[in-house]
């Protein structure tokens, strides 16, 4: 039935079999593959990895909100050496593109990870200049177009794989940041990271999260993410990986129409572990219903 569908997309020279990937921080190769076959996805985006292990923030790190959630994990990760020894060999069992999300406190730290991963099976880098949960670095680079440009330039100078820059929505004008990273050589953009949020336990009179604030994600943020993708599409030429609250195939189609070239599924996969593949199937169903043969057909159908 779906034989006439061609879901392939090309993101900065890397061909994906379909436009669905996982959102960093919500995907773990072994844990996620207990629920579905990773080879079904166009790409998998792994958790933020730094040059050395990071222990992250204290608990509680998670809070539910209306139609969404807050997290303040703080990029806990085992470091790039463990990533190379444990994650990459496991991912080699699957036929999918691997996007390594790169974390750092400084330009040097981002570059150290990229350099170490240059000659591995990683297909693309996603540089996280937008995590709201680390005090130093992260979002500090993503909220200033000059800083964002500097990180992009430095990483691009050494990266042997295409570089995606992940943008934060916690800025006045996201299109300006997008232009800065494009001008400094970014091969693609992924957007949006989480919105900075907070919850208070009114019985204890304390913030719910140990970190006080956290990143807001889930279906509730989708309209904001969609609007930003739409704005950035009109500001830059490079491919956009759209994310923010995608929970259904039609949500994915909305992002493609807004200007994304591929989409990432995040919080939906925490709620329903098979969400990335379920959304892919729903997207195919939508394409058949609409008589679309390719992802471009979806994008071209938008008249906004």
């Amino acid at each position: 039935m779906s034989s006439k569908l061609d879901l392939r997309v090309n993101i900065a020279g890397v061909e994906w079999k379909n436009p669905i990937t996982t959102a960093s921080g919500t995907f773990s190769p072994r844990e996620s593959s207990a629920f579905y076959d990773l080879s079904k996805l166009g790409a998998v985006t792994t958790k933020g990895v730094a040059n050395v292990p990071w222990s992250g923030n204290p608990t509680p790190r998670i809070a539910e909100t209306y139609g969404g959630m807050l997290n303040a994990v703080g990029l806990q990760n085992p470091g790039v050496e463990a990533y190379i020894q444990e994650e990459l060999p496991y991912l080699a069992n699957y036929d999918t593109r691997v996007i390594a999300n790169v974390a750092g406190h400084s330009v040097e730290e981002y570059c150290a990870v990229v350099e170490r991963l240059n000659d591995t099976a990683v297909d693309m880098f996603e540089v996280n200049i937008s995590c709201p949960n680390v005090k130093q670095g992260g979002i500090g680079f993503g909220t200033d177009s000059k800083q964002a440009g500097l990180v992009t330039k430095a990483v691009k100078a050494i990266a042997k794989k295409p570089v995606i820059i992940k943008l934060t929505p916690n800025v006045t004008d996201i299109a300006e940041i997008a232009k800065a990273v494009e001008a400094n050589g970014a091969d693609a953009i992924s957007m949006i990271n989480t919105l900075l949020g907070m919850r208070i336990d009114v019985r204890r009179g304390k913030p719910v999260l140990a970190n006080t604030t956290g990143g807001f994600s889930g279906p509730a943020v989708k309209p904001v993410a969609l609007r930003m993708v739409y704005q950035v599409r009109r500001a830059v030429q490079i491919p956009i990986i759209g994310l923010g609250g995608i929970s259904t195939g039609e949500d994915a189609a909305e992002f493609l129409m807004a200007g994304a070239d591929a989409v990432a599924v995040g919080t939906a996969a925490l709620v329903n572990p098979t969400a990335p593949v379920d959304i892919l199937e729903q997207l195919k169903g939508y394409m058949e219903e609409m008589d679309f043969a390719t992802v471009s057909d979806i994008k071209n159908a938008f008249q906004g």
Partner: peptide, 13 residues
Amino acid sequence: RMGCGYGACVGCV
């Protein structure tokens, strides 16, 4: 406090 319950989000440590 858990997010996903299956090891993906690293919320409960």
